[in-house]
Amino acid sequence: MYSEKVMEHFANPRNVGEIPDADGVGKVGNPQCGDVMWLYIKVKDNIITDVKFKTFGCGAAIATSSMITELAKGKTIEEAKRISRGDVADSLGGLPPVKMHCSNLASDALREAIKDYEAKKAAKT
């Protein structure tokens, strides 16, 4: 059983899509396990100005993806790094226990995207 908030985000996911000139891309999950998430970020002056995602997965995977885009947008890189799996689940009014492990990938994807952004930045300088 999903919370109303999860169902709402699943039904109307925010920020679906890709950013062709993204500053960072995070790809997590594995299709074998049934959940894959690709997260794109745009960063300006250390602030995440745009986030988009593409997700293959269950209702929880899509809802957490949608939620993380809302949580991350407008945050500084440091603030965004601190967003945890628990934060995403809490913002959605909780997730069924079995989904906490396998489908709650969104904060991992965000961290991967930030890592990618920082690596690209370091390479440039």
Binding site: K27, V28, G29
Partner: peptide, 12 residues
């Protein structure tokens, strides 16, 4: 297309 390992870093 989907294929094993295609997803990304393998974080689960």
């Amino acid at each position: 297309p989907m294929s094993p390992g295609e997803g990304g870093s393998g974080v689960q």
